[in-house]
Simulated assay, not measured.
Amino acid sequence: MTLLTGPRIVTAHGVIEHGHVRISGNTIAEVRPDRPDGDAEVVPGAWIVPGFVDIHTHGGGGHAFTTGDPQQVRDGAGFHLAHGTTTLLASLVTSPPEPMLAAVRAYAPLVAEGVIAGIHFEGPYLSRPRCGAQNPAHLRPPSIDELSRLLDAGGGAVRMVTIAPELPGALEAIRFLVARGVVAAIGHTDATYEQTLAGIAAGASVGTHVFNGMRPPHHREPGPVFALLAAESVTCELVADGVHLHDGTLSFATSVTGPARAALITDAMAAAGMPDGAYELGGQDVTVRDGVARLTDGDSIAGSTLTMDRALRRAVGAGATIVDAARMAATTPAAAIGRHDVGAVEGGRRADLVVLDDDLRVLRVMRAGTWLAPPS
């Protein structure tokens, strides 16, 4: 039994001053608003927040999730863990069928082990005009046969698939995914407002990096952005890096969704935490300059160099309270992928905690009841 006390504890419902967290094994047993009786570990810092949950990550620390190499995933997950991300999906990009199938087989053991929480396919069922940094040579219409092979090979490892709902067969694919227990997300889409609503009605419950890779909203054709922000059943991913979204856009979007439907994500690629220079994403050359990743051939944003602790700080800087920012960085994305065992500082959840200083920088990270080294 471990007792932690010291800084302010951020729960999904508010801030507990001078309270304590009781941990039993790898689980939070209790969170109380008082000092504990007996010996307790006094945690130096300003805040205890839940371990972050990133449902859209392509890599980090020089490691790419898009290569099909399990060691790259282990090392990239370790990089993000040091920045407070205790649960993440490994996001893959558009590629031919065989590499997709090989990646599922390679990564499924990592899901079973708990290194990652699942696989997210961001492609290949995307809109050509809105494919962004995705390789257009490998885009194709949704295929139930292909999805069946991927899901069967993963044995539950595939957790989310992004689809453009206007494509032929997209609605059938969304319904198929939902029936198989996989989250269907809408993204990289040129859909109209009505086509987006049809995708939501079919069961899509996540908007992939809303505003980015989408037909822009217009007052006479609101497109996917308005439909996703307004849909009560949809969690909207938001990349809070000041590049994908202006802080005013971030503030507006979260004012529409509220923290219960806004999920901060990194969309990070291998260059996160690394110097500027040349990288790749899904076989395409990427140049990182001033921390911004773009395709070398063209100007499309190619993921980000963001970490979740920076996303949290950006959200607070844009006007979110620490309670709402922590909810958007942990509780809401966890719920979006059906993980109610993580994502909050409350009894019964896994003991995933992040200790922050007054500037909201990471001091310590706990995953499953074990303290890890701070970020370098």
Rank of each mutant, 00 (worst) to 15 (best):
M1F: 14
T5Q: 07
I9Q: 11
I9S: 03
H13V: 09
H18D: 15
H20I: 07
H20Q: 07
R22P: 08
N26M: 15
V31W: 05
P33S: 02
D37T: 14
G38E: 01
V42I: 15
A46Q: 11
V49H: 00
V49A: 06
P50R: 04
G68K: 04
Q71M: 12
V73T: 02
G76W: 01
A82M: 12
H83Q: 14
V93M: 07
T94K: 01
A102Q: 13
V104P: 10
A108I: 07
P109D: 10
H120Q: 10
E122C: 01
L126F: 04
S127H: 02
P129C: 12
L139Y: 11
R140I: 12
S143I: 10
I144Y: 04
S148W: 14
L150H: 09
G155Y: 12
M160Y: 11
V161S: 11
I163L: 11
L167D: 03
P168N: 00
P168Y: 03
L171G: 05
E172C: 08
I174E: 02
I174R: 00
I174W: 01
G187R: 09
I200S: 08
A202C: 04
F211C: 06
R215C: 06
E221I: 10
P224E: 06
V225D: 01
F226P: 12
L228M: 13
S233H: 07
A240V: 09
V243S: 02
L245M: 12
S251Q: 15
F252I: 13
A253G: 04
A253R: 03
S255D: 13
V256E: 15
L264I: 06
I265H: 00
I265G: 01
G273L: 12
A278F: 14
L281R: 09
G291I: 15
R294Y: 09
G298N: 11
D299T: 14
I301E: 10
L306W: 03
A311P: 11
L312Q: 06
R314S: 08
G319W: 05
G319M: 05
T321D: 03
D324S: 11
D324F: 08
M328R: 10
A329F: 11
A330E: 09
T331Q: 12
T332Q: 07
A334D: 02
D341Y: 05
A344R: 14
R350A: 14
A351M: 03
D358P: 06
R361A: 12
M366I: 01
W371A: 01
W371I: 13
